[in-house]
Amino acid sequence: MKWPMGALAVAGIAAGAAAARRKSADRPNRWLGVTVNLPTEEVENDPRLRDAFAALAEEAETRVRPAPGGRGTELAARRRDPGPGGVAERLAGRDPRQPVRSALRDVKSLLETGEVLRPDAPTTGQPTPGGALVRLATRRAGGEGRL
């Protein structure tokens, strides 16, 4: 099958853009953020936010601003000293950004629901290979914020 030259150019540009996004996502000192579904004024005046961000004050800088499109409030943080980071550290569970991710996810949950929500434990009664994978994914999701 012969590909038209325009289609190859578009595919090449798309692949280059995807690689650039992956590269920028691995920067160890990039801002990590969550969007809270509450007005900015309400979030800024909430003492729970001050308490949560006070716990991060030593290791991270934080910011609060309106989310794009008037869709709530954006909370963001990044480590002051990024240290080593990257895919290898994340896979090994030693990413220095993990406490910042967890704190942002916890404060979002606290502000929106009034409590920090945790995933339920896997319901498998017998240790099986599939159950081991579920337990690993659940344990890792706590630091990443997603499976």
Rank of each mutant, 00 (worst) to 15 (best):
M1N: 01
M1D: 01
W3N: 02
P4Y: 00
P4D: 04
M5I: 14
G6A: 15
G6M: 13
A7F: 07
A7T: 07
L8G: 13
A9D: 03
A9F: 09
I13E: 10
I13S: 12
A18P: 05
A18K: 05
A19L: 15
A19V: 09
A20Y: 04
R21E: 13
S24K: 13
D26L: 10
P28G: 03
P28H: 01
W31M: 00
W31F: 02
W31E: 05
G33S: 15
V36W: 07
N37C: 08
L38K: 14
L38C: 10
T40H: 02
E41T: 06
E41G: 10
E41L: 07
E42F: 02
E44Q: 11
E44N: 08
N45T: 14
N45V: 01
L49K: 03
R50Y: 07
A52H: 06
A52M: 05
A52V: 08
F53Y: 15
A54W: 11
A54N: 14
L56V: 13
L56W: 04
A57E: 13
A57H: 09
E58V: 08
A60C: 07
T62A: 00
T62C: 02
T62G: 01
R63S: 12
R65V: 09
R65Q: 15
R65C: 00
R65F: 03
P66W: 07
A67M: 05
A67I: 00
P68G: 13
G69N: 07
G70T: 09
R71F: 10
R71P: 04
G72Q: 05
G72D: 04
G72R: 04
T73A: 10
T73I: 06
E74I: 01
E74S: 12
L75Y: 00
L75I: 01
A76Y: 00
R78Q: 08
R79E: 09
R79C: 01
D81K: 15
P82K: 07
G83R: 03
G83D: 01
P84E: 10
G85H: 00
V87D: 11
A88H: 00
E89L: 15
E89V: 06
R90W: 09
R90D: 04
R90Y: 06
G93K: 11
R94W: 11
R97E: 14
Q98V: 05
P99G: 02
V100F: 04
R101A: 04
S102D: 05
A103S: 15
A103E: 07
R105Q: 09
R105L: 12
D106L: 08
V107F: 04
K108N: 04
S109F: 06
S109D: 12
S109I: 12
L110T: 11
L111A: 08
L111M: 05
E112M: 05
E112P: 01
V116N: 02
V116T: 14
V116Y: 02
L117M: 13
L117R: 15
L117Y: 02
R118S: 14
P119L: 13
D120R: 10
D120E: 14
A121D: 12
Q126L: 05
G130I: 12
V134R: 08
V134S: 06
R135W: 01
L136R: 04
A137C: 03
T138G: 02
A141C: 13
A141L: 10
G143K: 00
E144D: 11
L147H: 11
